[in-house]
């Protein structure tokens, strides 16, 4: 597995995803790459609740989810919780083709699902973490 995420500092990633298989595979891949802890939220509402309890370094956000979708959750995090992209980068992780449109939704990058190229996905995550 790829080993790109810098190890000097513990990083906390919030994975917002309703699909159990994606939760399992994504958490396992990312945690295998470095000093990273992945917390899972099943939808945008749960993500916001978790964000109220503790800080995270980055969010991986699915878009189509029950209860609260990824666009609405991101909007809430940016406008109601006042997290800037510098404080808390959000990467869309979706089967929707939103290439080029993610900045319109307050997101910093985009990972297409199903993920077939984990090294590239990990590099995107690491690039966002390095900017913090």
């Amino acid at each position: 597995m790829n080993n790109n995420i810098e190890k000097t500092k513990q990083r906390r990633i919030l994975l917002v995803e309703d699909n159990k298989m994606n939760q399992f595979v994504t958490k396992r891949y990312i945690e295998s790459t470095g000093n990273v802890e992945v917390t899972i939220a099943d939808n945008g509402k749960i993500a916001i609740d978790k964000l109220m309890e503790r800080d995270f370094d980055l969010i991986l956000m699915d878009i189509e989810m029950p209860v609260m979708n990824g666009f609405d959750a991101t909007k809430y995090i940016r406008t109601e919780m006042n997290y800037s992209p510098e404080d808390l980068p959000i990467l869309a992780m979706t089967t929707l083709r939103i290439d080029g449109k993610y900045p319109d939704y307050g997101m910093q990058d985009y990972i297409a699902k199903p993920v077939s190229d984990w090294p590239t996905a990990i590099a995107k995550i690491d690039a966002c973490l390095q900017k913090k």
Partner: peptide, 15 residues
């Protein structure tokens, strides 16, 4: 709701 479930399955079925 059917759309949400079908969409969710999109990333399971490649397995």
């Amino acid at each position: 709701e059917l759309k949400q479930v079908s969409h969710k399955m999109k990333s399971t079925l490649p397995y």
